[in-house]
Amino acid sequence: MTNQTTNSTGQVHHIRRMTVIWIILSIVADVLYSIFVAAHIPPGRLTETAAKDQTDFNILIEMAIPVLLGVWIYLSYSLYVWGDKRNPNEAFSGDAARGNTKVQASWIVITTVTVLFLAGFGTWALVVDHGSGGGQGPNPAFAPAGALKAETAALLGRATWSPGSTNVLPVQVIGQQWKFTYRYPTFGGFESSQLMVPANTTIAFNVTSLDVIHSFWAYQLGVKADANPQVNDVAFTTTKDPGTFIVRCSELCGIWHGSMYNNGAVLSQTAFENWATTTEAANAANTALLPAFAWTYVPDANGASGGYYPDGTLTPYSPSEVYGAKQPS
C-alpha cells in the first residue's frame, strides 16, 4: 500500500480518497454528458420554453450524476476495501459511519443545500419563463408582457398579428372525444384540425374541452395544459425557428385516447400568415356557423347527461365563462 493516503499515524483517509475519486469521476461524467448527450435531451429547442426545459433538465441531470456516482463509489469502495477477501479475519471491518459527526453533518448539509437549490431554481425557472409552458388556469400568474392585451382583443374580435409584429398570438385549443381542434380569433375565429404557429412569436394557448378532461401536450413546444370542460386553461410559449411537433392527449379520455394526436408545425411568419389567411377563406362558410369566440363553451345541448339533442333551438355550444377577473370592461 505505498500509494495510499495516510495521516500522521499511518491510517488511511478513506473519506478523502473516496472524495477525490468522486470529484474526478463526477467532473469527467458531467463533461462527457454535456458534450455528447445534453443537446439531445427532450423536448428540444423549438420554443424558448422547450429550450429552457431542456436546460433545466440538463442542470438537474448534471446535478444528479454526482449524487449517483457518490452512492456507487461509496458502495464500490466499501465492497472492495472492506470486503471479506481483503479482511478475511474480521466480521465487520472499516470505519463506523454511525456516530461519525463529520459524515452525518456532511450528509445533512449537502442534501439540504441540494434540495434548497433545486427548489429555488425551480421557482426561478417557473417565474422567468411565464409558467414554463404549463397551464395556469384562467388567470395566469406569470403572463408575459402584452398577453392580457392580446387576450382581451381576441375576446372582442380585435386581435391583430402580422409578420414582424410583437403581438402575442392567442390560439384556442378545444378538446373533444377524440380530437383537438384549434381556433384562431386573430383570423376571424376559424376552427381547424391543424395547429400551425408562427416562428419567433409568443403564443397564448387557451385550452378547454367540450366533454371530458383531456390534456393538450405539445412536448416539443414545452407546453402541457389540461383541457377541462368550462375552464380556460392558459399556457404560454415563445416559438423560435420553424420546425414540426406532435400534439398528444395526455389524459386517458376513452377508447380513442391513443389516437388523439396530430402533427403541428412552427412556420416562418410569412408562411404562417399565408396559411392562416388561406384557411380563414377556405373555412369562412363554416366559421360563420360557429358560435362567437369565447374562452369556454357549454355543450349541454347535445348529448350531455344522456340527453341527445333535447332542443334543436339551443346554440350548439355557447360562451359560458369570461377570462376570469381579467374580463374586458
Partner: peptide
C-alpha cells in the same frame, strides 16, 4: 340534429 361542434359540419 345540431352538432356539438359545428367544425364537423365541414
Amino acid at each position: 340534429g345540431p352538432l356539438r361542434n359545428q367544425v364537423w359540419g365541414q
